[in-house]
């Protein structure tokens, strides 16, 4: 078997992306959904692997109520313009911890995303799945959180081990992204 040759002038397009999703907050999940859907829109294959807290986006009971992380998020000042305040205004972690603040920030963010035609998590996953993207849960994380396939969204393609997921990446024009 000949190994694939390295050609620095080869500008052939990317063929596949594998996206590992390990964070379960709204702001942890959306970048992965947008990257996966964007790949399919460009004709690039996309597989998503939800592991650790990322599984929050696949659990039927939680997937449509993900929250913005307002605690320990040093960039929350970026949300200030949504309240009509300057982007430079600090948002101390102590404020983020006040009950209701995360809900409120989430509400503002969801409203803004709706204006930009960004779908809610469940519908976004449906779009990616309809587009031929693959949605996988991580077996080890499922065991850790005592989850079974019945707890997950009906259209999850499979529960995979890490090795299974890497095998999805076969081919020389694959990239693995970690979000």
């Amino acid at each position: 078997m000949t190994p694939p040759s390295f050609d620095p002038d080869n500008n052939a397009p990317l063929e596949k992306v594998l996206i590992v999703v390990s964070k379960g907050s709204l702001d942890g999940i959306y970048p992965a959904l947008i990257m996966a859907n964007g790949a399919r829109m460009e004709g690039i294959e996309a597989s998503m692997f939800f592991t650790f807290f990322g599984l929050n986006a696949l659990v039927k009971k939680t997937m449509d109520s993900l929250k913005i992380s307002t605690v320990g998020n040093a960039a929350m000042n970026m949300a200030m313009p949504l309240l009509g305040m300057p982007i430079t205004m600090p948002f101390p972690t102590a404020v983020g911890a006040i009950p209701g603040v995360s809900n409120f920030a989430t509400h503002l963010m969801n409203k803004k995303m709706d204006e930009l035609d960004i779908p809610p998590v469940g519908e976004f996953l449906e779009m990616i799945s309809d587009a031929g993207g693959k949605i996988y849960g991580c077996k080890l994380a499922m065991d850790m959180f005592n989850l079974t396939k019945d707890d997950l969204w009906d259209r999850v393609d499979d529960i995979l081990t890490v090795g299974d997921f890497y095998r999805e990446g076969a081919g020389t024009r694959t990239q693995i992204l970690f979000t």
Binding site: E42, G43, D117, E126, A131
Partner: peptide, 27 residues
């Protein structure tokens, strides 16, 4: 126009759109 709007308008489902125009349907 977005794929989502095409789907919601009832013109074409996302699945069908990808089948009709394989390899980057909207563009």
């Amino acid at each position: 126009m977005t794929i989502r709007r095409l789907n919601k308008s009832g013109v074409i489902s996302t699945k069908e759109l990808y089948a009709l125009f394989p390899g980057g349907p909207l563009k």
